[in-house]
């Protein structure tokens, strides 16, 4: 703190601290607290608010586990909301893994192999899609992937059969990978640029093949970048609204759609808040669990 003051002076420090505090309090904590408080109260007609039935309850949370609308998941009968939640997590994991599989080689290439002169151009090419709004990008994919769209026209032209790209979860996965891959790319790129080239060469010199050097030296070094990238992509995917809405098919479902429905169709903000918090909580738990597993495993692999 004293360091901060020394660098920016009292006046500027005070302004910066006040702004940060305002942002944290007024724009993060207050709305969240209001939402949490709401989530423990029932959605009531205006006349009953403050009345005897307006009390704290877990009913909103429990309504998710309503067995009256149940469905099968891996041979088990589960409430439909739980099924959608599990599917959402499953496909979000898929999106995260695909993002990693694509971003890691690209990041490695840019950080370690590309000639310094090429890097600004390559970065610009990566960043340009970000200048376009997420909405437009997703729409663009909708057009590209449509059954009568350019991709199928291309396949048709080279003599391959057309594919129903937007059936099932395909469209969602493609759209999410495209939208979120840079959040995987940049953290990995950053951690790889900090890796001393001599480390990679030392591994090779000691007899490691390329994949062994990656597994034992390069990936462990990039692990902080990989895990922060994976966490971001996963959380974004789970919480995505736009992509499932635009690129989903009649038989694809995403948990955020349940939240949206109760919020806008049912006007039931209380339940929506409860669902959203449950989603956040379970996902945080899931991510920390996976990270713990990941660390243990990786430590084992490298031993």
């Amino acid at each position: 703190m004293s360091d901060f003051v020394r660098r920016y002076g009292w006046g500027l420090s005070a302004i910066l601290v006040t702004l940060t505090a305002f942002w944290l309090l007024a724009l993060v904590w207050v709305p969240y607290s209001v939402m949490i408080e709401k989530s423990f109260r029932l959605y009531l007609p205006v006349s009953e608010i403050g009345g005897p039935s307006d009390r704290y309850t877990l009913a909103n949370y429990l309504s998710l586990f309503d067995m009256s609308a149940s469905s099968e998941f891996l041979g088990l009968m589960v409430p439909i909301a739980v099924q959608v939640f599990l599917i959402t997590v499953f496909y979000s994991c898929g999106v995260t893994i695909i993002c990693f599989a694509l971003a890691y080689p690209a990041a490695y290439f840019l950080a370690k192999k590309a000639a310094p002169a090429q890097i600004p151009t390559l970065f610009l090419m990566l960043a340009i899609p970000l200048f376009v709004s997420e909405m437009l990008r997703t729409f663009a994919w909708f057009i590209i992937l449509a059954y009568q769209g350019p991709l199928n026209a291309l396949l048709d032209a080279v003599g391959l059969s057309k594919v129903r790209w937007l059936s099932g979860y395909n469209g969602i996965i493609i759209g999410m990978v495209y939208t979120y891959i840079l959040f995987m790319f940049f953290p990995i790129y950053n951690s790889l640029t900090a890796l001393d080239n001599n480390q990679i060469e030392a591994a090779k010199d000691l007899g490691a093949r390329s994949w062994q050097a990656h597994l034992n030296v390069i990936m462990p070094h990039a692990k902080p970048g990989i895990s922060s990238g994976a966490t971001m992509v996963f959380m974004f995917a789970v919480g995505s609204v736009l992509v499932p809405t635009l690129l989903g098919s009649p038989n694809s479902r995403w948990f955020t759609e349940i939240i949206i429905r109760s919020m806008f169709e049912g006007q039931d903000w209380n339940s929506a808040a409860a669902y959203a918090f449950l989603l956040l909580l379970v996902c945080l738990l899931f991510v920390s669990l996976v990270m713990k597993l990941f660390r243990v495993n990786l430590a084992d692999i490298t031993r």
């Binding site: 001393d196 001599n198 480390q199 060469e201 030392a202 591994a203 090779k204 010199d205 000691l206 007899g207 490691a208 093949r209 062994q212 034992n216 030296v217 462990p220 070094h221 490298t302 031993r303």
Partner: peptide, 30 residues
């Protein structure tokens, strides 16, 4: 990785995420 040479780098390039014996036995592990 196929030459019968071992190089000691100007900055040594030991693997900081491995302990001493893992460093030493890296070439045997691969």
């Amino acid at each position: 990785n196929k030459r019968p040479t071992a190089l000691i780098f100007q900055n040594l390039a030991l693997f900081p995420l491995m302990n001493v014996w893992e460093n030493i036995s890296f070439g045997l592990k691969v």
